[in-house]
Every structure is written in structure tokens, then in C-alpha cells.
Computed example of a mutant assay.
Amino acid sequence: MNASSTTAVNFSLEVITLWVSDVDRALRFYAHQVGFTLDVDYSPNDVFRVAQLTPPGSNCSIQIGRGLIDSPTGPLRNVYLVVADLQDARSRLLERGVDVSEIRHKVPIGAWDGRFAPGLDPARSDYASFAEFSDPDGNSWVLQERGYRNP
């Protein structure tokens, strides 16, 4: 047996490519409304363009552009953005014009059976509270609270 076959391979998710119909509109949405950092916007010709944006505090970025995906793939669904304070994150997105759903939480927490109740989880438990938003092309994002500390 090869010694290297017994050790785990580390995989680092660093980029997710999203299909968008209008790169400039998507750039405005992600950079100006959602608040992602624009890392690069490269277009050497009229056929190819790649823009990479990173959510604040994330090690994973998104790419949008022309010539990245052969054909429209349909929207990406339920990409999670984990935040320490869901109520604050939702408020900031709303202030920037992002249409964010109401907050909901799992019930019952201990033996979750797929039901939700309105509002934040009363105990602010990790992974228990959610809100959602979508970009103009229908790519959907889930905000999930983890690591809340009462100030």
C-alpha cells in the first residue's frame, strides 16, 4: 500500500462561477449592494471577461463574466453566507437595496423536523437562523447565523 493513500487530501473551495445575463448589472449588485470586494475585472477582448468578487471575511470568491460558462446553466441555488449577526447583516443588506427575506429559525432545535418559525432562534444557536436573497438572475443565497455573541 502506498503511504500517501492513507493521508487525506485537503481540498480548498476558492471560487464558484455564477452564470449571469448582464455582467455589469451583476457587478453593481454584488459590489455595490451586497458589499463583496471586487478582486479583478479582466477583459482582454469582446469574447472573454472575468470578474472575481469576494465576500468580506471569506476565503471563497465568486466569478462572473463572459466566456466562462459555455451556455446558461440556470441559477445557482442556496449558496450559504455565514454571518455572526444575522439581524445586523440583513439590516445592512436591506439598507443597500437588497431584497432579503424575513428571518426564520428551525423548530424544534434539538430534533429539527424541517419546520421553521418566524424570527431569530431565541437562543441564537449556531446554524439555526436563516434569511435569503437572490441576485437579478435568480442565483440564490442563504444567510445563516453562526457564532453570535451578545454584545
Rank of each mutant, 00 (worst) to 15 (best):
G97E: 07
F48I: 05
A111P: 01
A51E: 01
D22H: 08
T73E: 09
N59V: 05
T54W: 13
R124T: 04
S21R: 12
D85K: 05
V20C: 08
P55N: 06
P55A: 13
V100W: 03
N10D: 12
D126Q: 09
A117V: 06
D85Y: 10
S129I: 07
F130P: 06
L94E: 13
R49L: 04
D135P: 04
N45F: 04
I103R: 06
E145Q: 15
I109G: 00
F48S: 00
G119E: 01
P108Y: 11
G35K: 09
L86Q: 12
T73I: 07
A123V: 04
P108G: 02
P72C: 02
D135L: 07
R25L: 11
T54V: 08
I103K: 05
P136T: 03
F11K: 08
T73L: 05
G74A: 05
V47T: 12
A3Q: 13
F36Y: 10
E102Q: 12
N139P: 06
A123D: 15
D24C: 00
D85N: 15
D85A: 05
Q144S: 10
V34A: 02
A131Y: 08
D88V: 12
S12C: 06
Q144W: 03
H105C: 04
R146Q: 13
D22Q: 04
R77V: 07
C60A: 14
L94R: 15
F11I: 10
D99H: 09
A26P: 03
D137I: 06
L18S: 03
F11G: 00
R90N: 02
A131G: 04
R90T: 14
P56G: 05
E95R: 14
D39L: 13
I109R: 14
T37Q: 14
Y80N: 10
D137E: 08
P56L: 03
S12R: 14
R66C: 01
V100Q: 03
S12V: 11
R96K: 15
V83S: 06
P44F: 02
V9R: 14
G57F: 08
S71E: 15
E102M: 05
R66N: 12
S71C: 01
V107L: 09
Y127A: 03
M1G: 14
M1L: 10
W19H: 14
M1S: 13
V40K: 11
G35T: 07
G57P: 11
L53N: 05
G74H: 10
Y148E: 02
A117H: 11
G57A: 07
